[in-house]
Amino acid sequence: MTEFSRRDFLRFSLVGLGALLAAKFINACAPPQVAPALAPATAPAPVIPPSEQTGTTAAKFPDLVVVRKGDPESLARKTLELLGGMKRFVKKGDNVIIKPNIGPAMRTYEYAATTNPWLVAAVVKLCLEAGAGKVRVMDKPFSGSAESGFVNSGIREQVEKAGGVIELMSHLKYVATDIPLGKDIKKWDIYEDIVKADVLINMPIAKQHSASRLTLGMKNLMGTINSAQMFHTNLHQRIADLASRVRPTLTIVDAIRILTANGPTGGNLKDVKQLDTVIAGTDIVAVDSYCTSLFGLRPEDVPYIVIAAAMGLGSSSLDSLVIKEASGAG
């Protein structure tokens, strides 16, 4: 056996160090990037042809879709059908990210603390059918490891069956991101892939929450950032600020089973109400506004909805929206 001498060691270390420095140098030589290298913040809205946006051709697509009755897959299919088909949102080869809620890593879906796994899987399938290149499903739970969360919630099993990919969110990919429209927070660590995705589908479950009152579409975006617990000193404003930067293409609320008390963690079946309903739309504020009615509340009861509407992120006046309701069964 050859000896690995001290000289060899030093030579090896020097080469390694040199390579690292060279890498740093090359990096420094690269064209300067506006940190972070993300889509321009002035155009935060999802890429949907103007002709299809609310107001212009109101008749073509509804602002909101509410589908009741049926199994998760038929609820999802009916929802997307009413919204104009998944092809309206997902183009061929698109990089799609679905963000469900698996915040409480320890619950199974019955407790309505995490998004229904069959609903998530159905949306994965729809994306793939529409030609998506890659469909990733990710969330960062707050009460345990993501590994356990994906298993306990049943989402890993169903998503992988449907052909989607589970991503354990890597701490590498949280990048300090400017929030130009933010009132309270101007910068926060946001998951880079989520900001960069071609299509982001937000899939919260409707839940009671002590501070924000309800966990809905905008609250669910807190799973895309680091140090979420630092949000709470000015929770409502910060949720709205985040929603101004992370703009889902589509928000699909799982109201198949909703959690009415002891949220967002749940754990008691007495607190769960079965509604077999899915609410979806491109306007996250409108979707959240509608969902307040599931709990017998009004949009103005939830401060972050009011703030977001005032910031111009969407509409909270349910009367002015085109809402299409249907049954998923049969």
């Binding site: 707050f142 002590s210 501070a211 617990q229 709470h232 000193t233 000015n234 963690t265 754990g267 008691n268």
Partner: peptide, 21 residues
Amino acid sequence: LPWSENTPCIVCEEMCPVPQK
């Protein structure tokens, strides 16, 4: 925070994982 300086915060309650908080 809410006890000592009247700053809103409910993180402990939100996190509490037992079925009845």
